[in-house]
Nucleic acid binder design. Structure first.
Length: 582
RNA sequence: GGGGACGUGGCGCAAUUGGUUAGCGCGUCGGCUUGUCACGCCGAAGGUUGCGGGUUCGAGUCCCGUCGUCCUCGCCA
């Protein structure tokens, strides 16, 4: 490179007119008028129009879009009628004195334009071209600013950033671990962290008091639009705190982030809602609270209903019948109702019971089962003439969850969600355990290190009603963080291990080291982890995590750019004492 | 592991009920062009319709299988 830039492509203004400058960048577009040529030069900072006489610069014959050039030239004001108000540099142009071709390019597989509508697979395969596009670049910048604001806020609030190992001990509970086989120790493996949970708790015992880290976490499970195998968390933990202290730190962080990056004011404290209330009213543990359509409990009437699905469900274990009023829904076409039934079915329901309260009385499959007392009950739940009422029947969580999804379906279908609003809400008092039907045992709802809010019953007892100091931060119906007050007493920790079916030997083998940590003066502590990718996605207005990750993986976990995972060679397998299945 | 959608020149799309030589726009290449900024005008090249098999006189179109991508249930915090 003979000519190194003295200005970026977003820098020159009328105040620079007359200056001799050097620009480096990519050719965005060439407009060749024969005796006069316009070149839009682009870098991260902007675009500058270069004007050249092709007869003076023979190299111009060999360059096209995405070639990299250096331009030596003079800044001059554009003629008044040729100014471009759409660009910050639109009042000036650089008249080329010399042009140096720094690199040519193959014909790009797609054009570098804002509204590029090529398929995502191709964009990710050529991410180095895709990221030159302004929307992608903007998402990366947003993320960078988010990370900076997080560090600024956390350090400002007295937290210390500590790095924890990525090669760590594999753990049996929760998501599947990515394994890293050991070369030195045949048959042994590290696990990549699902989160630095035990290390951050250990840091509390170390006396760090306030810890945070922006760290990569890994989970070897199937992917979704909002789930990648590796993702980034803001991980934090504090000593001598109750959950309100954790909330306050996060509220200060998030209100600051929102005012900086979303340009909107979010006020703290955020509303709090118990898990029971969230499930009961919204059919979800991550409620979208920007519209109504709250659910109601139809148990009383369902119990005595002639409709067998209702009455039989009420006699089954954990059986419940829940309903939801769709105001004005009696006018909805059958197609919309059928679609909502499909939603309920996809979430495990046999169907969706519904009734339209029309002018001539109840209509629909359920109407013949509804007596005057049922209709009075519906009225008490807010149903009026002209409304649609839908119901699910089943076990508590599936029935509520399915109806919650139906609620979201109607919220979107009827455009009830005010997307201009930002609703943070804390969900608190989660159940400590949940029953795993496949394995016939209780397992931790969050993880095994969450503190119960009351004394644990003897092993073998019913754990289904136990609550924990466990909380989620929910934003516009997205779970963006999850945390808890932790167990800091080794006896309690040992009890929890026993409750989830770990023998003392297994507990010792997997977590003995951590039980010992707790035995040496562990302070009461708690914390939370926020999903930075998801927060960035919401701030960017994106619908996929891939839009805010520089080099994301496809739904099957493949990196489109590098084609990982790939086959290690024979020697690599051998060194790890492994052999692939043929 | 299950369900759904998609796969056609480099890119985005079209092709009626299975029927002629698979079209259009962008890009690319060549020519013209001194005030454009999605420059314009003229011309040209570019296709094993993801892959494999089948049905048929005939398949981009129908059937079976397979691969890939996306969405999703399960799974996962």
């Amino acid at each position: 490179m003979r000519h190194q830039r003295t200005k970026t492509c977003g820098e020159c203004r009328l105040s620079h007119v007359g200056e001799r400058v050097v620009l480096n960048g990519w050719i965005q577009a060439v407009r060749d008028h024969g005796g006069l040529m316009f070149i839009d030069l682009r870098d991260r900072y902007g675009f500058t129009q270069v004007v050249a006489d092709p007869t003076q610069h023979a190299q111009l014959a060999e360059v096209g879009p995405e070639c990299v050039i250096a331009v030596v030239g003079t800044v001059r004001a554009r003629p008044a009628e040729a100014r471009n108000a759409n660009r910050s540099t639109g009042d000036i142009e650089v008249a080329a004195l010399e042009i140096e071709v720094l690199n040519t390019t193959k014909v790009p597989p797609f054009e570098v334009t804002d509204e590029c509508r090529t398929r995502e697979e191709l964009r990710l395969e050529h991410r180095y071209i895709d990221m030159r596009r302004r929307p992608v670049l903007a998402a990366m910048e947003l993320r960078s600013r988010l990370n900076f604001l997080i560090r600024q806020s956390m350090v400002g609030q007295g937290f210390m950033e500590v790095e924890t190992p990525v090669l760590m001990k594999t753990s049996p509970e929760g998501a599947r671990d990515f394994l890293v086989p050991s070369r030195v120790h045949p048959g042994l493996a590290y696990g990549l962290p699902q989160s630095p949970q035990l290390f951050k708790q250990t840091l509390m015992v170390c006396g760090i008091d306030k810890y945070f880290q922006i760290c990569k976490c890994f989970r070897d499970e199937d992917l979704r639009a909002d789930r990648q195998p590796e993702f980034t968390q803001l991980d934090m933990e504090m000593s001598f705190v109750r959950q309100e202290d954790v909330f306050a730190v996060m509220e200060k962080l998030m209100t600051g982030v929102w005012s900086e990056l979303a340009g909107s004011t979010v006020t703290a404290p955020f509303p709090r809602m118990t898990w029971d209330a969230s499930m009961t009213h919204f059919g979800s543990d991550k409620p979208e609270t920007r519209f109504g359509l709250e659910l109601f409990d139809f148990a009383e009437r369902a119990r005595v209903s002639p409709f067998k699905v209702f009455s039989q469900t009420m006699t089954a274990p954990q059986g419940t019948v829940r309903g939801m009023v769709v105001p004005g829904g009696a006018a909805l076409p059958r197609r919309v109702i059928d679609e909502s039934e499909a939603v309920a079915k996809s979430y495990g329901m046999g169907g969706l019971a519904w009734v339209k309260l029309g002018a001539e009385g109840p209509q629909g499959p359920l109407s013949k089962f509804l007596g005057p007392e049922d209709l009075a009950a519906l009225k008490s739940f807010g149903a009026n003439q002209g409304d649609l009422v839908v119901f699910t029947a089943g076990r508590f969580e599936p029935a509520l969850n399915a109806l919650g999804q139906v609620r979201l379906h109607y919220g979107r279908e009827l455009k009830l969600i005010d997307t201009k609003q930002t609703h943070f809400v804390w969900i608190t008092d989660f159940p400590m355990f949940e029953w795993n039907e496949d394995e016939k045992r209780f397992e931790a709802k969050h993880h095994m290190f969450t503190a119960p809010t009351e004394a644990l019953p003897p092993v073998g007892g019913d754990l289904s009603h136990l609550k924990a100091s466990l909380y989620d931060l929910v934003l516009n119906g997205n779970e963006i963080g999850s945390g808890s007050i932790r167990i800091h007493q080794p006896e309690v920790q040992a009890q929890v291990f026993a409750h989830v079916g770990l023998t003392p030997e297994q507990a010792q083998d997997k977590f003995g080291w951590f039980l010992r940590v707790l035995e040496y003066g562990a302070p009461p502590h708690g914390g939370i982890a926020l999903g930075i990718d998801r927060i960035a996605m919401i701030l960017a207005g994106a619908t996929s995590l891939r839009d805010v990750i520089a080099f994301p993986k496809s739904a099957s976990g493949v990196c489109p750019l590098t084609q990982s995972p790939s086959a290690p060679d024979e020697r690599q397998w051998r060194e790890l004492h492994l052999r692939p299945e043929a």
